[in-house]
Simulated assay, not measured.
Amino acid sequence: MIIQSEKKTKRKIFEAVTTAIGWIFLVLFLFMLGSHLEWKINRNIYALSLVNSSIIILVTVIVIIISFLVLTLWGIYNKRRFGKLFRRSFPIPTEIEEIADYYSLSTIEVLQLQQKNYVER
């Protein structure tokens, strides 16, 4: 069985927006972290001085607590919503003939490609 599916446009847009927001958050977080840290070279030893270290610790603790709550609630939701489903059955393995037919190759070529460590395009 060869599985090939097309994603819906709404899903593609949602994934792109979510990914963009994640990258923006990461870049802003690293920028803010970098702005709070000052690296100084002192006798070949890097000394890290923190500006308002108590605020950094407080924000870190708040982010950890919020992350823990969100992941816990998400897990509870998934358990209630999808816990009753049993989807652990796997499809039957794809035969070499099916792969050869799908890619318009001979079975010998498919076997050779499967044995290669590097496939040229």
Rank of each mutant, 00 (worst) to 15 (best):
R88T: 15
S54A: 10
I41V: 13
I56P: 06
G83I: 01
I66R: 02
I57R: 05
R88E: 15
I57W: 10
I41K: 03
G83R: 01
R43T: 02
F82H: 00
R80Q: 08
T60Q: 06
W39E: 05
E38S: 14
I62W: 10
N52T: 09
I66H: 02
G83P: 00
T60E: 05
L48W: 06
L69W: 01
F68S: 07
L48M: 12
N44I: 05
N44V: 07
N78P: 05
K79C: 07
G75W: 04
N44D: 09
F82E: 01
V59W: 00
A47T: 15
W74T: 06
I76G: 02
I41D: 15
I56E: 12
L85A: 03
A47L: 15
L48C: 11
K84H: 12
K79V: 10
R87K: 13
W39C: 09
R43C: 06
F90H: 06
S54N: 11
S53K: 10
L69K: 01
L69P: 04
K79R: 07
I62A: 11
T72R: 02
G83F: 04
Y46A: 15
I62H: 06
T72V: 08
V51L: 14
L71G: 06
V70C: 03
F82I: 02
A47K: 11
I45K: 09
Y77H: 02
F82M: 01
I45F: 10
V51T: 07
K79Y: 12
L73D: 10
F68C: 03
F82W: 03
L71I: 03
V59Q: 03
N42W: 12
R80L: 13
L48G: 11
L48E: 07
S53V: 08
L58N: 04
R87G: 05
S54Q: 11
I56F: 14
K84F: 05
N42Y: 06
Y46N: 12
I56Q: 13
I55G: 13
R87S: 13
K40V: 03
L50S: 09
F90D: 10
I65E: 01
S67K: 04
V63E: 14
W39P: 00
L71P: 01
K40N: 02
K84I: 05
I55P: 05
V51W: 13
V59C: 07
R87Y: 11
I57H: 00
I56G: 15
F68G: 08
R81C: 04
S67Q: 08
Y77P: 01
V70D: 06
I41G: 12
F90W: 09
L71E: 05
R88K: 14
V61G: 00
A47H: 11
W39V: 11
V61S: 00
L50A: 13
V63C: 12
G75L: 00
L50I: 13
I57C: 05
R87A: 07
S89G: 09
K84P: 00
R80D: 11
L50T: 04
Y77N: 01
T72L: 15
I57F: 11
L58H: 04
V70H: 06
E38D: 07
